[in-house]
Design a protein around this nucleic acid. Sequence first.
DNA 1: TTACAAACTTAACGCATGTTAATGCGGTCC
DNA 2: GGACCGCATTAACATGCGTTAAGTTTGTAA
Lengths: 241, 241
Amino acid sequence: MIDCAACPLHKRPMFLPFTPEEIVFMRGFKVSEDTFQPGDTLLHQGERSDRLFTVLDGFATRSIQLEDGRRQVVNFVFPGDFLGLQAGIMGEMRHSVQATTPMRVCVFQRSRLWDLFRDKPDRAYDLTWIAAVEEHFLGETIATLGQRDATERVAWALARIWQRLSALGLGTTEGVQLPFRQHELADALGLSAVHTSRTVSTLREMGLVAWKRGKLNMLDPQRLFTLAGLPMEREEQRPLI
Amino acid sequence: MIDCAACPLHKRPMFLPFTPEEIVFMRGFKVSEDTFQPGDTLLHQGERSDRLFTVLDGFATRSIQLEDGRRQVVNFVFPGDFLGLQAGIMGEMRHSVQATTPMRVCVFQRSRLWDLFRDKPDRAYDLTWIAAVEEHFLGETIATLGQRDATERVAWALARIWQRLSALGLGTTEGVQLPFRQHELADALGLSAVHTSRTVSTLREMGLVAWKRGKLNMLDPQRLFTLAGLPMEREEQRPLI
DNA sequence: TTACAAACTTAACGCATGTTAATGCGGTCC
DNA sequence: GGACCGCATTAACATGCGTTAAGTTTGTAA
């Protein structure tokens, strides 16, 4: 089990470093590690979970299953993301989390979440910070699904994913390895898989992106971000739990 | 200024009561009250705000403005809702809050938010609870916008609003007073105002609801909730900040 | 009582996107 | 090498929703 002082996530510049005090606390808070394979469900919609996770490595989707089987991907999960707050705070997950690649996660105990609030207000503040940022992204997603057409939506999703992967240091001059399939992108954007394919082709023809066999390349980031309605800023550093 | 011990919101059974200790703390935390008129903007997208609010009375929308003027209503604001967490935690609002009726709000100081985490872990926990519930509703909204057709969307929105107003004790046998216009509903659901009108008519013809001159009546709640993909449960009690 | 504005309704038409189905293409297993 | 499988692409057609524009209704103020 990796010691929190040697946490590989902290090598990524997008995360705020731990103070020595935080390291001590997190060592006590962390229970174990676990791994998952593509397709595994880490957290089940409708169920409680005694375990909370921080993603060390790998990718996943958060998704909501409707009564009749339709599926909405609420957002994508990246290394550093904290999973299970809903189960931790509200008792029951309202969405599922499913691995799309092999994953490695840190495991925490739900029952000790209250300790964190009682003993470590700064960590509690960070947790709320994370929740607030999450809320902001969900709001942006709602605006995208509600107001933008297919081209803008796909541009938005690719831009956001690329931005996040780059911040994680997973980009090369050869482009980034996209850990999601077109079908998942479609489920995230409220589009059919067929129309998503058409739309990606359009972006290709417009000379904005190249996306082939899981490799995404930005040919014209400026124009892509404009189309997506996003500023080309670097993401703010975020705390880790 | 209303004393927190006499807070009118706590008369509503949907809110958890304050402990005597909490009353003492909230009296110190609350700075003042303020009122707003329909159309007033309480919090501005892109701006910081030194003030956080709890809605005592009245209704509002949270909405995101796109570069080109399109508007997405992210959700509706009801009495008891806490406003400004984003500005409080992240620094800058990513959406605006606009009154749709006259409003009365409690005012808190952003600079004292940290005190709350340091001195009152139970209140901090409640705040995070609120953020987690908010996150859950936003996820449900994303699923609705992404997967459901116009009829289901309108049914969902009316069901959720009716549910909330009922929980607040604002329903009578004559139905509830809807504080939002069809145009705002359209902006919340990613539909045009015209199609929203058509769709409401459909629901009327199906004998599910009556909505005329701001009065909403549920003619067949069971079927409406089924169409909306919602269980007909009472909402959980929630804490107030 | 009339006039006017705001909100809602209805109708006609076009287009973006969904659906179904066939095709292609790279990876993998034997 | 051949057969298969998952995934992406392309084409043909259907449809739900947007758009524009013309009513209608209600509230309000002169």
